[in-house]
Structures are given as C-alpha cells and as structure tokens.
C-alpha cells in the first residue's frame, strides 16, 4: 500500500495540471471560433494561431503529466 500515496499524488498532479490547461485551451478555442465566425476569410491563419496558443496552454498540462509519471516512479 505504500505505493498508493504516490499514485494518489500523481493523479492529483495530473488532474490539477489538466484542469488549468483545459480552461486555457477552452478559452483559446472559444475565442478562435468567435474570430473565425467574424472573419471566415482569416480562418486558416486563426487556426494556426490557435494551435500555437493551445500548445502554450497545453505545455503546462504536459508538465503536470511529466510530474505525475515522476511521482509514480518515485
């Protein structure tokens, strides 16, 4: 059972990290849809920018994932 506290920590770490990243990506995605609806002719550029911005937000979530794996192994 001593490993289980690590697993708990890992789960919480990833959960919180994903929480923030999800909010970030959701906001970026929502604004992207708004922008695309307003200017459909710019859709390609907006989409590219969306992916890059989402990548920034997702990077933090990924750091949480890494932390979770480290905690699992610890």
């Amino acid at each position: 059972m001593e490993g289980s506290i690590n697993v708990l920590g890992a789960g919480l770490a990833y959960g919180f990290a994903a929480f923030g990243a999800a909010i970030g990506i959701g906001m970026v995605g929502g604004r992207t849809v708004e922008a695309m609806a307003r200017q459909p002719e710019m859709a390609g550029k907006i989409q590219t920018t969306f992916f890059i911005a989402a990548a920034f937000a997702e990077a933090l979530g990924l750091l949480g994932f890494v932390l979770a794996l480290i905690l699992m192994a610890a």
């Binding site: 997702e58 990077a59 990924l62 750091l63 994932f65």
Partner: peptide
Amino acid sequence: FLRPLTLAMRLFA
C-alpha cells in the same frame, strides 16, 4: 528549452 520538452511530451503522452 521548454519547446523540445513539450514537443516530445505532447506527442508521446
């Protein structure tokens, strides 16, 4: 330096 890390982690994860 975070760029390659996230690039690798994103795809792998």
